[in-house]
Design a protein around this nucleic acid. Structure first.
Lengths: 229, 229
DNA sequence: CAGACCGTTCCATTGTGTAGAACGCTGCTG
DNA sequence: CAGCAGCGTTCTACACAATGGAACGGTCTG
């Protein structure tokens, strides 16, 4: 691993890595956890985390554990607000969740090879435990990934079974921006046992229709340049 | 300004400052703008920003301007998801906006002295231009601030006129967590000309009711410790 | 009680971050 | 058209900020 001859900014790179780990829901949040995840000596991790705490990017609870800080929440909220897709998808997601009775999601492509769940409206009747917002899944083999690459059937949607989780059907359709390119995807996740072929078609039609409306709204409003680069 | 003898982490502190400025909607986004805002020589700012870009925290558009990057969006989404207040306030905000016909907001206290707008549902009929999410206002003299400090009238809400913006009435009520402390506030913003005393009372009653329901939901679910510290 | 693991402080070493100088570029303005 | 101002960028020698090993006290386990 003698990589990174990029620009000689070790402490900064390390701190940003720590910051990323800090926001990762799957990670432990103790000093040693974070130090180990970043392959740093505890003393170094401690100092860098202290800098994050000083700046409000992290906070510590009484047990000494680290959490995302208020500044991170502030910046995140501001960044999301600048994302017009996120902004306008809200009502559509709610309608989709209502009409299909299943969980509706908004996803975008990040880092070229993954899908980030940006927003989620849970099935109205089902009290759903897991939230996927902020997590990412691979592009390949998933309905979201197919939709984001434009790999959809004649009706305009893609679907898979068991790709994200076992016994779950995923249906997805692409959202297009003002430039015509695909900038996001809407999807629905539903348990396999209550999802037959007819249901999938119904969901697909619903998604395609809402994606069309959402794309139209986005095209009319603004062309945010570097939002999903 | 000979402060910060804190812990000797200059480059990190500076980078985090740049990151904060980057997400500030009111700031210019060119290299010189950011360098000036942080009082840094351009060469230094360039290198630190390059580190942010390398890590995906920032991105550059074709003009050379800087923007929040995908990682920032990812982290922001994850951080917001961990905030149970944000999560559960959604339906309440929508109902409030629907029932009152005005814009409903969720705010929390940050840095001890300011109120951060975390979430907003615009008035259903009014196509509202400005979004306040991610921005902050002072505690003192605002309805949000009063609600967050518990400074409410007998009915359980606080209101002001013209404190955030001229000719706007603000009404706010506190949300309480499992520990009983105030962790957030819901508010409604309405133009003065269509808001008389009776309307304010109506809005106040609506807010208090929803805050009660929201607090109950939060108390029953989970006690997120350091979320508003 | 020994051992493991934790968070934290300290400090000599060194390598990373710093900022000034210099360059090419674009867009003003007299 | 020449002159100037401001931009983004590269390069470099120097100095100081960042590093991580060692050592300490605390808590938890077996």
């Amino acid at each position: 691993m003698l990589s990174r001859m990029a620009s000689s900014t070790r402490s900064v790179d390390r701190t940003l890595k720590l910051l990323t780990d800090l926001a990762d829901p799957d990670q432990g949040k103790s000093l040693s956890d974070l130090a180990r995840a970043s392959q740093l000596p505890p003393s170094t991790a401690l100092r860098l985390l202290a800098a994050l705490v000083d700046s409000g990017f992290a906070s510590r609870d009484v047990d000494g554990g680290y959490h995302p800080g208020h500044r991170l929440i502030q910046i995140g909220a501001a960044a999301l607000r600048e994302d017009s897709v996120h902004e306008h998808s809200g009502p559509h997601l709610m309608e989709i969740a209502h009409d299909t009775g299943e969980t509706a999601n908004l996803g975008i492509q990040i880092e070229g090879e993954r899908v980030l769940y940006l927003r989620q409206v849970a099935s109205p009747r089902l009290i759903q435990g897991v939230g996927w917002v902020g997590r990412s899944i691979p592009m390949t083999g998933t309905a979201m990934g197919a939709a984001l690459t434009g790999d959809v059937d004649a009706s305009g949607y893609a679907w898979t079974e068991g790709s994200v989780e076992p016994d779950v059907v995923a249906v997805a359709a692409p959202v297009r921006g003002a430039s015509g390119g695909i900038i996001a995807a809407l999807s629905v996740l539903a348990p396999s046992y209550r999802t037959d072929r007819a249901k999938i078609e119904e969901i697909g039609a619903c998604l395609v229709e809402h994606c069309r409306a959402l794309s139209e709204g986005l095209g009319a409003i603004d062309d945010r340049k570097a939002v999903a680069a």
